Computed example of a mutant assay.
Amino acid sequence: MAAGGLLTAPPASAHTTLVAAKPAKGAKVASPAQIKLTFAEAVRFPGIVLLDAKGGHHEAGKAHASGATVTAQVAGVLPPGVYRVGWRVVSGDGHPVTGDYRFTVVGSAASAPAAAASAPASDGSTDDSPAPAAVTPSSTPAAQHTSSGSSTGWWWIGLGALMVVAAVIGAELFRKRRLSGS
Rank of each mutant, 00 (worst) to 15 (best):
K36E: 10
G94E: 05
L7T: 08
G4T: 02
L173H: 00
L179E: 05
A109M: 08
P23H: 04
T140F: 04
S148E: 12
L7M: 14
A134K: 10
G5Y: 11
A20E: 12
S111R: 12
G5M: 14
V135N: 11
P80H: 09
A40Q: 07
S66L: 14
W155D: 12
A114R: 10
Y101N: 10
T16S: 09
E59T: 14
P10T: 12
L78E: 09
I169C: 03
L51M: 13
V77G: 08
P80D: 00
A40C: 01
V105T: 00
A116E: 09
A14D: 10
T136W: 03
S31W: 08
G26D: 15
V135H: 12
A114S: 11
T8K: 01
V19W: 01
K28H: 06
L51A: 12
A75C: 07
D128K: 09
G61T: 13
G170H: 04
R102S: 02
A65E: 14
H64C: 03
Y101I: 02
H15M: 05
V19N: 04
T104A: 02
L51Y: 09
P96A: 10
L50I: 11
R44I: 10
G181Q: 01
R175Q: 00
A42S: 14
S13A: 02
S66C: 00
T71S: 14
V19C: 04
G160V: 06
I48S: 10
I169M: 02
R178G: 04
A63F: 08
V19Q: 12
V135C: 00
G81I: 01
V70S: 06
P79C: 09
H57A: 15
T69D: 05
G76Q: 07
A65G: 03
T38R: 13
S111V: 13
G92N: 09
A60V: 08
A42I: 06
H145P: 06
H57P: 14
G56N: 11
A24D: 08
A12Q: 07
T38F: 07
V89A: 04
V82H: 03
S151C: 06
R88I: 11
A143M: 00
Y83K: 03
E41K: 10
L51P: 04
I169W: 00
H145L: 14
G149A: 05
V164C: 05
F174H: 05
A171I: 01
A171D: 05
S129Q: 14
P130F: 07
R88H: 06
V77C: 12
D93N: 15
G160F: 08
A42Y: 04
S111G: 10
T146I: 13
A114F: 15
T69G: 07
R44W: 05
R88A: 15
G181T: 14
W154K: 03
G67I: 07
D127A: 11
A142V: 00
W87S: 13
G56E: 01
S91P: 08
A60T: 06
Y101H: 11
A30V: 02
A33G: 14
A112S: 06
A9C: 04
V43F: 00
V85W: 02
S147E: 07
Q73N: 14
V105Y: 01
V168E: 12
A2I: 05
D93C: 09
W155P: 03
